[in-house]
Amino acid sequence: MRKDSRLSRMLHVLLHMDGRDKPLSSDVIAGMLTINPGIVRRTMGDLRIAGLVSAAKGHGGGWMLARSLGEINLLTVYLALGEPTIFALGPTIDSASCGLEIAANASLQNGLSQAADTFRTHLASVTLADLIVGASGVEEIRTV
Results as ranks from 00 to 15, higher is better:
Ser5Ile: 13
Arg6Glu: 12
Arg6Cys: 09
Ser8Glu: 15
Arg9Pro: 05
Met10Tyr: 06
Leu15Glu: 08
Leu15Met: 15
His16Met: 10
His16Val: 07
Gly19Arg: 06
Gly19Thr: 01
Asp21Gln: 02
Ser25Glu: 03
Ser26Pro: 04
Val28Leu: 07
Val28Ser: 04
Val28Asp: 00
Gly31Cys: 03
Gly31Leu: 06
Gly31Tyr: 00
Met32Trp: 11
Leu33Met: 10
Leu33Asp: 06
Ile35Cys: 14
Gly38Lys: 12
Ile39Val: 14
Val40Met: 03
Val40Ser: 09
Met44Gln: 00
Leu47Ala: 04
Leu47Thr: 02
Leu52Pro: 05
Leu52Trp: 02
Leu52Cys: 02
Ser54Gly: 14
Ala55Asp: 01
Ala56Gly: 12
Ala56His: 13
Ala56Asp: 15
Lys57Cys: 04
Gly60Asn: 02
Gly61Thr: 01
Gly62Phe: 06
Trp63Asn: 02
Met64Pro: 05
Met64Val: 08
Ser68Val: 02
Leu69Val: 04
Gly70Trp: 03
Glu71Phe: 07
Ile72Lys: 08
Asn73Asp: 14
Leu74Trp: 07
Leu74Ser: 09
Leu75Gln: 03
Thr76Phe: 07
Val77Glu: 06
Tyr78Ile: 06
Ala80Asn: 00
Leu81Lys: 01
Leu81Ile: 09
Glu83Asn: 12
Thr85Arg: 13
Phe87Val: 04
Phe87Tyr: 07
Ala88Met: 11
Leu89Ile: 11
Gly90Met: 06
Pro91Trp: 08
Thr92Val: 12
Ile93Ser: 13
Ala96Ile: 12
Ser97Thr: 11
Cys98Trp: 15
Glu101Asp: 13
Ile102Thr: 08
Ala103Cys: 12
Ala104Glu: 15
Asn105Arg: 10
Gln109Ser: 12
Gln114Ser: 13
Ala115Lys: 10
Ala116Ser: 13
Ala116Met: 10
Asp117Lys: 03
Phe119Leu: 01
Arg120Thr: 04
Thr121Gly: 01
His122Ser: 08
His122Phe: 15
Val126Pro: 01
Thr127Lys: 01
Leu128His: 03
Leu131Gly: 03
Ile132Tyr: 03
Gly134Pro: 00
Ala135His: 11
Ala135Thr: 14
Glu139Gly: 11
Glu139Asp: 14
Glu140His: 12
